[in-house]
């Protein structure tokens, strides 16, 4: 516990994690999140896992935080983003968090990992690569498919559908939502409006 680097980095990491959640400006929250992620990367460096650290920075700072900030900039004027939580709720959350820290921390301190002696051997990059491509190769395939799925999914969601050809009117009408109608009862908002609209169109034809 006497390692000054460790203490500094952990204080910065934890503080910026709290700032990320609590700072009023969302964009500063995102920057604080980036600092937290960098702090984790520095922990990795302290743990002789340089490759993981660099991977962490490349993926998180280079992609994830950029995406988050981009989204924040896109939607930052939206009022519904700034829904505020009540003070009581916040106190409750803090109590839960402290309880978790206390309970799990006590359990941890009681467990025998405190007496573990660190060994000198350091896992190498070659070992990681070998493990990933032999033992974990099916998981690697699954990961590739996961990334493919997320790309396909994100593209489909982010794309603006301009109705093409036959489906034009119908496709657009499908999800359209009329506030009066669907707030009145238990009805499903989306597709029903579409169906109704479509039926009108069908009659016109």
């Amino acid at each position: 516990m006497s390692d000054p680097y460790f203490i500094t980095v952990s204080v910065i990491t934890i503080a910026s994690a709290i700032i990320a959640l609590e700072f009023r400006e969302l964009i500063y929250g995102a920057i604080a999140l980036a600092v937290t992620l960098l702090g984790i990367a520095i922990f990795f460096v302290l743990l002789d896992a340089t490759f993981v650290a660099m991977f962490q920075i490349t993926v998180y700072v280079g992609a994830v935080v950029v995406l988050i900030i981009f989204t924040i900039m896109l939607v930052r004027r939206e009022a519904w983003l700034r829904l505020d939580e009540g003070g009581r709720r916040r106190v409750m959350g803090a109590v839960i968090a402290l309880a978790i820290i206390g309970l799990l921390g006590a359990l941890l301190a009681a467990s025998s990992i405190a007496r573990w002696q660190a060994s000198e051997s350091v896992p190498t990059l070659m070992q990681i690569g070998e493990e990933m491509l032999t033992y974990y190769s099916p998981a690697f395939i699954a990961l590739a498919l996961t990334l493919a799925a997320s790309v396909v999914g994100a593209l489909v969601l982010a794309k603006v559908d301009r109705g093409k050809g036959r489906d034009k009117g119908k496709g657009e009408g499908e999800g359209e939502w009329d506030e009066e109608e669907s707030s009145s009862g238990f009805e499903r908002g989306g597709e029903l409006e579409g169906e109704r609209k479509e039926s009108v169109e069908g009659e016109e034809r």
């Binding site: 990491t13 934890i14 994690a17 709290i18 959640l21 969302l26 929250g29 995102a30 937290t36 988050i68 989204t71 924040i72 983003l81 700034r82 829904l83 505020d84 939580e85 709720r89 916040r90 409750m92 959350g93 803090a94 839960i96 968090a97 402290l98 978790i100 820290i101 799990l104 921390g105 941890l108």
Partner: peptide
């Protein structure tokens, strides 16, 4: 564990998707 607790705090308290 402290980070885990902060994360759970955020998920229980915050109502903002981001």
């Amino acid at each position: 564990i402290i980070l885990l607790a902060i994360g759970i705090y955020g998920l229980t308290v915050k109502r903002n998707f981001i």
